[in-house]
Design a protein around this nucleic acid. Sequence first.
RNA 1: GGAGAGAUGGCAGAGCGGCUAAAUGCGUCGGAUUGUAAAUCCGAUCCUUCGGGUACGGUGGUUCGAAUCCACCUCUCUCCA
Length: 423
Amino acid sequence: MTTENALSHAKSPFLKEAFARGYLHQCTDVQGLDKAFAAGPVTAYIGYDCTADSLHVGHLMNIMMLRLFQRTGNRPLTLMGGGTTKIGDPSDKNEARPLLTDEIIAANMAGIRGIFSKFLSYDDGPTGAIMANNADWLEGLKYIDFLREVGRHFSVNAMTKMDFVKRRLDNEQYLSFLEFNYMIIQGYDFLELSRRHAVLLQMGGSDQWGNIVQGIELGRRIDGKYLFGLTVPLLATASGQKMGKSAGGAVWLNADRLNDFDYYQFWRNIEDADVGRFLKLFTELPIEQCDALGAAQGAAINEGKKILAYETTAMCRGKDAADAAASAAATTFGGGGVSADLPKVQAEAGAIEAGMSIQDAFIAAGLAGSKGEVKRLIKGGGARLNGEKIDSDALMVTAADIDAETGAVKLSSGKKKHVLLVA
RNA sequence: GGAGAGAUGGCAGAGCGGCUAAAUGCGUCGGAUUGUAAAUCCGAUCCUUCGGGUACGGUGGUUCGAAUCCACCUCUCUCCA
């Protein structure tokens, strides 16, 4: 029975819906896993490295899958890679990355933790999510003991055949023993979690398939356990682009890295062809409704984009944030008025009243990186002050430009990027 | 261990003594078109107090003048053992 076929026969609510919504890419044993669900709540985990202080939309699909997992009566476990981040995942890289310090890792972990509590419920019930940190068991490992228990089950012959190892060896690029150990350590995490929290299933991006399978092997060899693995597809736009760029950078889930308005706008501006698929992946609306919205033709498809943007923003940033972003978008793109809910940036005290060059104002607002950039923007006809096109780079922003209602001047770079520079 | 080749802007990749802030492509940012979409087309794309200043792996040298020539150093790749 093919995976596809087995999935369409799956009985468990989780597998059925995950399949229908498009979360599933590969699974080690669909039928076996389906049976496991029938026996009661299953615990599954996804690991996250702490390489940045926020996660971005690229991580969102598997977070949504964990959420679905919990909603369908199971227990999700989020594993923070406090230990593995010290090694650094080499699998998708061509060269070693600089090692992160303990302080940076700790700060990153704090930032990431906050996100999960928005999507999962960490209560004490039978399906309450668990937060674990692999530093708890990795840092105390005794080297010789570890080698004897775990190391002997790993075949170097097989490891050198892995894609990324092969590539580095073939190109004679330096591959440190440290990096070489990543897959062993990650495989060991699965074993450890199966012991500590009775975790039965590891999920992850399709690039994690190899690591997941290693963990399953290890569980079978050492503890005689039968574990499962499941991956989500790589997320790309309909026209083949990598997901996750918005007005000038990555689409971060943390509000302090990307404001609510821009987060909303990211979803509002996706390609037509992605509407149905994204609604299924990133909202919890009924599948039929998602399909119906995605099937709309022409300008009518915008309805689905608005719903997608509202739902995703509400989930990640809260209902109030979603309402504010939606209304800011409606006034900004509909009527042309100034909405008080546009992203705000605080200017230096008294700077605008004293008279600020247009270049400095754009830089202060974060809409440009240098004065030259502002000049170019003006020359290209894309710079606006309070909605009025700016024709001269000698223009000064003064107290007269401050809007009484918002107490700010509105700066725009192009049609879509707007910032209120608060006096 | 021996013999070659190379290191250029966010990336890929030309240039091989002055005409080079450095071709071209990608990316990015604007504009047009449209539906706040995609595709397409057009323009821009080091910083600047607009005098100039920095920049072609690093350090010295040759020259009126170097990304381009020389020496050494660092790293990468290819072939031979």
